[in-house]
Simulated scan of single mutants.
Amino acid sequence: MTLWWWLLLSCVLAYAWKLVGYLVPASLLRNPRTSRVAGTMTIGLLASLTVVNAVASGQSLALDARLGALAAAAVALLFRAPFLVVVLAGAGAAAGLRLLGWG
C-alpha cells in the first residue's frame, strides 16, 4: 500500500473511533472515576508527547535548545504565567540557546 492509502485508512479509523464514542452510555460518563481516569490519561499522553518532541530526533536522543525551551516553559508554568507568556518564554529560551550555539 502507498502512503496515501495508509493515511486514508488512519483517517477513517480515527473518525470511526470518534463515532464509537457516541455509543458510550451517559451513566458511564457521569461516573467520577471515569472522569478522573480520562483526565489523568489526557495529561499523561500530553506530557509524554511533549517530552518525546523535546528530546527525540528520529531514532535517537537529542539534547539541544528544545530541552532548554521546555525547562523555561516549565519555570513559567511554575510561576503561573499566562499561556502566551509560557510560549514566549520557551521560544525566547530556544532562540537564545541557539544563538549561543547550543543545538
Rank of each mutant, 00 (worst) to 15 (best):
A71S: 11
T50L: 14
V87Q: 01
L19A: 09
P32T: 15
P25M: 07
S27E: 14
G92N: 04
A93K: 02
L84P: 00
A14C: 12
A94M: 09
V51T: 07
L9D: 03
L45G: 08
L23R: 11
L70I: 01
R66T: 02
V37I: 15
L77V: 13
S48T: 10
S10N: 03
V86C: 11
L28I: 07
R33C: 02
G90Q: 00
L84K: 04
P82E: 05
M41P: 00
R30S: 05
P32H: 13
R66H: 04
A54V: 06
V37H: 11
A26Y: 06
T50R: 04
R36Y: 08
A89N: 02
G92E: 00
L61Q: 08
G101F: 04
D64A: 13
L23M: 09
C11H: 01
N31Y: 03
Y22K: 12
L63Y: 10
L46E: 06
V20K: 15
G68S: 05
K18P: 00
G39E: 09
S48D: 03
Q59L: 08
V86Q: 04
A14T: 12
A14H: 06
L77M: 14
S10A: 09
R36H: 14
A76R: 06
A47L: 10
A73Y: 02
G39H: 07
L84V: 09
V86F: 01
G58I: 07
L49N: 14
G101D: 11
L97Y: 04
L63Q: 02
S48P: 00
A62L: 10
A56N: 06
S27A: 15
V12W: 07
